[in-house]
């Protein structure tokens, strides 16, 4: 075999190694991006779950505190807005309002001991507080995933691959209003 042939073989080998590496990095990036997507979907699932719980909650509270019309209607209205919200920004805002309305409703419940002893209500309360927790944890997981992904596509050498195949940085799920941040901590 000539020296040219050996050189060719070496070059070919290098190309193959680089290709394999590119494929590996690319697949890793896709995996991370999918993880972010799944995390986002989970937030949606939990928000939907909260929407589904609310009619039940309102019905139960009505049985005891029907005359607290204003607070109950505010919750129903906030839910309607949240369900029909379009676009991320609007949705975040509507969900924040819903959290606040729910917080007020549950504060109000404090003054109805009979309601607080009701088994249906207690079960709903557990479901609701769990859902608030889940939303919080889903958001937390989303942000963690985004951080991992963003860090990966910013560092060298994966950033070269990321630039070639159009992997862009993804935004964090920031909660801007202080009220919304506190909302999951509403006393149940």
């Amino acid at each position: 075999m000539t020296s040219l042939g050996i050189a060719l073989l070496i070059v070919l080998g290098l190309v193959v190694v680089i290709l394999l590496w590119v494929v590996g990095v690319y697949n890793g990036l896709v995996r991370l991006r999918n993880q972010v997507k799944n995390a986002w979907a989970q937030i949606d699932v939990q928000l939907k779950r909260r929407h589904d719980l609310i009619p039940n909650l309102v019905e139960t509270v009505k049985g005891y505190a029907g005359h607290e019309r204003g607070t109950l209607e505010a919750v129903v209205a906030a839910r309607t807005r949240a369900v029909s919200a379009q676009g991320l920004e609007q949705q975040v805002k509507a969900e924040g309002e819903l959290s606040q309305a729910l917080g007020r409703l549950l504060m109000l419940v404090e003054s109805y001991p009979d309601l607080k002893a009701n088994q249906n209500f207690l079960a709903l309360q557990e479901e609701l507080s769990s859902t608030e927790n889940r939303i919080g944890f889903a958001r937390q997981h989303y942000n963690d995933s985004v951080m991992t992904y963003n860090t990966r596509i910013q560092t060298f050498p994966p950033n070269v691959i990321a630039g070639m195949f159009g992997f862009h940085e993804l935004p964090f799920f920031e909660v801007d209003s202080a009220a919304e941040r506190r909302a999951p901590q509403v006393k149940f």
């Binding site: 993880q35 799944n38 989970q42 557990e126 479901e127 769990s130 944890f137 995933s145």
Partner: peptide, 16 residues
């Protein structure tokens, strides 16, 4: 055990 179940589910979400 709804509470235990919920807690496990919450942590499943938190851990992804």
């Amino acid at each position: 055990a709804p509470q235990l179940w919920n807690v496990v589910e919450e942590m499943t979400i938190a851990a992804g």
